[in-house]
Nucleic acid binder design. Structure first.
Length: 741
DNA sequence: GACCTGCTGCGGGTTG
């Protein structure tokens, strides 16, 4: 790894263009950040790819663009010289504004291109392409499809590609799309173009490098900021719910913790600008409404507003404007919408309700606070169950609280989830194949395989056999057709798909209902619960009654109402990484308590540790729970699900229950025998195991894959057979050792 | 499985 060396800073700085240096002085900067200095030789010298990892506000954008602008200044050439790809339109707008200032003095032209940019501006750029282009992957896709023949001319002078918020592209269909586009771009201009990846949240720099430049990750220059992170003030607060008297009465107990958390938020956040992350849209709505109620009762202006992806654009922008306005104290209760990118000004505190979906996500959220030399403040709120004689055994371990603490500990250790090993991304391969055909008005099969799956492409692991199978399936479904000379052309279903504007996105979106109040659209919602007139619900932080449902137009009419519950959209978390579970075990076997735990959390953790010891889980991670057996291999959700699939294949009934694997109606001895058998057998093939799994279609074009390819796809994306067998070995070994003592 | 991201061309209207 290349480390920044501050001693030679003056030398590096001198290598910048004189006008760039003047611009730096004009900003009033005394010196460059370590990362900005280190990036100068790495970017100016070379033809190397560069990966820049540094905390929020460490100046990653400037680290890339000070040297890039130095290099391209005075070479105004025909064609775009630097391409910036960002995941959000709002982020592109922000970066465009910042970049314009610097580029103006250098006489470098800047263009932004996304769905909200006027067609006339796009036309102007096409007539006279030069300088820097800021774009989304979707708009770049539209360029390939609609202006395929212009691509070589537009990018003939391209010298750099910058990928902002690189982490948001890793392990996703959208990331495979972007990397395929960049590969196709390099083929069009017949040379490799240096890539510069920027991110604050990369768990493993070499794994990220391997994705930035598929097949050649070891040649990527890695620059990681040595600057110490911001000061951090932490607190974990627990609130206890009583167990409901009857199983059907699930709301009664839960309300205690919701009230307690809302009370504390209301008392502590008013008067400043804050973010509250509530994990699920339904939780966002619940807490926003609870906080608005408290403002009403206290007779004070309401400072609490909901913000999530289903709210109408105008409502979200209102909240964003309030966040940016330093004269208006505002707390946004939000999902992941405010986790990334756009500059929302100085944030006083970040609150997290429930375990964060991942450590990476927690780091992103924390990065929103504590800029401008203020410490970052994080409060994590946790709802826990009161424990009595009736409490189910698994609930006694207080796993949500333990997961919250484990995530924080890993964050303090500067760990976050690394990218997963390569997936096939066959859905996006279909999209790229159709796009390639549109770009060239037809392509030969061998050429298609060479371009899309050759060395350096994200689909390099797709075999020629798999590709041939893909072509056959697409042909049989009339997505593709072939001319007499073998050229692949768009078929009866392929043609309208590519010609519709929704084609450009690689990711899947579902159909949703529009919610309307007196002619104004409040937002949209995927409705997967019974919908009827007079139903009470909460949306946009307010309470409503349903007055009419128009099934055909997918419209729901609302009127304000006093009561109402948030729509049940599900509250389960995402996939927990194995490392988090390992740390949870460590915490349960430890006897220390971090200073940032409040008294309630400390008490609950001590209780959980006593239960852990009583159940002798340190010796043998198995619990007998009535007729069921619970296994706690302390591994990730992916591995647990794979283990469940292996067990189901042998005729046992296994499901994932939080951090545990539940073997229904299975005695302890039978569970142990099964684990020993899995531990002693070679790991099954993921594609074979996938055959037993229903619901394998998840990505946009998965419906166009045949069963064989779908199994290959699902196996590579969702199953970890080796990890599952390792988990079984751990259980088998521990139980063998436990029984001998 | 939670959450999120994005998108064209054209016709028709209004405004300067």
């Amino acid at each position: 790894m290349n480390s920044p060396t501050s001693a030679s800073e003056a030398l590096h700085f001198d290598r910048l263009h004189p006008l760039v240096r003047r611009w730096v002085w004009q900003q009033g900067w005394n010196e460059l950040h370590d990362i900005q200095d280190a990036a100068i030789p790495a970017i100016l010298d070379g033809n190397n790819d560069v990966l820049i990892g540094a905390a929020t506000a460490a100046g990653k954008t400037e680290a890339a663009f000070l040297p890039i602008c130095s290099k391209i200044a005075g070479q105004s050439g025909p064609g775009i010289q630097a391409l910036y790809v960002g995941p959000l339109k709002a982020l592109i707008n922000d970066q465009f504004r910042r970049m314009e200032e610097l580029c103006e003095v250098l006489e470098i032209r800047t263009h932004r291109w996304h769905g909200d940019v006027a067609g006339t501006r796009k036309q102007a750029m096409l007539r006279n392409p030069s300088g820097i282009l800021l774009i989304t992957p979707e708009s770049l896709e539209a360029m390939f499809v609609l202006r395929g023949t212009h691509i070589p001319r537009l990018f003939a002078s391209l010298q750099y590609v910058v990928i902002d918020e690189l982490h948001s592209f890793l392990d996703t269909e959208r990331g495979a799309q972007l990397l395929s586009q960049l590969h196709r771009l390099e083929i069009a201009v017949k040379r490799q173009i240096p890539r510069i990846g920027l991110s604050a949240t990369l768990g493993d720099m070499s794994l990220a490098a391997a994705q930035l430049r598929p097949s050649d990750g070891d040649k990527v220059t890695i620059l990681e900021s040595q600057a110490s992170g911001q000061d951090l003030r932490l607190q974990v607060r627990s609130y206890v719910d009583e167990r409901p008297a009857a199983p059907s009465d699930t709301d009664a107990g839960e309300e205690t913790s919701v009230r307690g958390i809302a009370d504390h938020l209301f008392a502590n956040l008013r008067g400043k600008t804050n973010l509250v992350f509530a994990n699920a849209r339904s939780r966002v709505e619940l807490y926003a409404a609870e906080l608005a109620d408290r403002s009403l009762h206290a007779g004070v202006p309401n400072e609490f507003h909901a913000h999530h992806g289903n709210l109408a654009k105008e409502l979200r922008e209102d909240v964003e404007a309030m966040l940016k306005d330093p004269t208006k104290p505002t707390t946004a209760v939000c999902t992941t919408t405010l986790e990334m990118g756009i500059d929302i000004g100085a944030i006083a505190q970040v609150a997290q309700i429930g375990p964060p979906p991942s450590v990476a996500s927690l780091r992103q959220r924390l990065g929103r606070s504590g800029r401008r030399n203020e410490p970052a403040i994080l409060r994590a709120y946790c709802a826990s169950m009161a424990v009595d004689a009736e409490t189910p055994l698994l609930d006694r371990l207080q796993l949500p609280l333990v997961q919250t603490i484990a995530s924080i500990e890993l964050l303090l250790d500067r760990w976050c989830e690394p990218p997963e090993p390569a997936q096939l991304h066959l859905s996006t391969l279909i999209q790229q194949l159709l796009s390639l055909i549109a770009q060239h008005s037809g392509v030969l099969p061998l050429e298609a395989y060479r371009v899309l799956c050759g060395r350096g492409s994200p689909f390099f692991i797709v075999t020629s056999t798999q590709f041939a199978e893909l072509l056959r399936t697409l042909g049989s479904k009339d997505v593709l057709t072939q001319s007499n000379d073998g050229t692949l052309l768009l078929g009866g279903r392929g043609e309208p798909t590519v010609n519709h504007y929704t084609f450009y996105a690689a990711f899947q979106t579902s159909e949703e209902y529009r919610l309307i109040h007196s002619g104004r659209q409040l937002g949209t919602m995927p409705i997967d619960f019974p919908l009827y007139e007079d139903l009470l619900l909460v949306f946009a932080g307010q309470r409503w009654r349903v007055t009419a449902i128009h099934e055909e137009d997918k419209v729901v009419q609302l009127t304000p109402a006093p009561g109402g519950k948030p729509p049940q959209l599900g509250v389960s978390a995402g996939l927990v990484h194995a490392e988090v579970r390992v740390r949870m075990r460590t915490l349960l076997e430890d006897d220390r308590a971090a200073a940032y735990l409040d008294l309630q959390s400390r008490t609950l953790l001590e209780q959980a540790r006593r239960e852990y010891a009583t159940l002798q889980l340190d010796h043998c991670p198995i619990i007998t729970d009535g007729a069921d057996t619970l296994l706690l291999p302390w591994t990730g959700d992916r591995q647990l699900h794979t283990l469940a699939a292996i067990l189901n294949e042998t005729g046992m009934e296994a499901t994932v229950d939080g951090a545990a694997l539940r073997l229904i109606g299975t005695p302890r001895s039978a569970a142990l025998t099964a684990m020993a058998k899995i531990a002693d057998s070679p790991a099954p093939g993921p594609d074979q195991l996938a055959r037993k799994v229903e619901n394998k279609t998840t990505a946009k074009f998965d419906d166009w894959l045949g069963e064989d390819l779908l199994c290959d796809q699902f196996g590579s994306a969702s199953l970890d057979c080796i990890g599952a067998v390792e988990a079984a070995r751990l259980v088998a070994k521990a139980s063998a050792a436990g029984s001998s003592t």
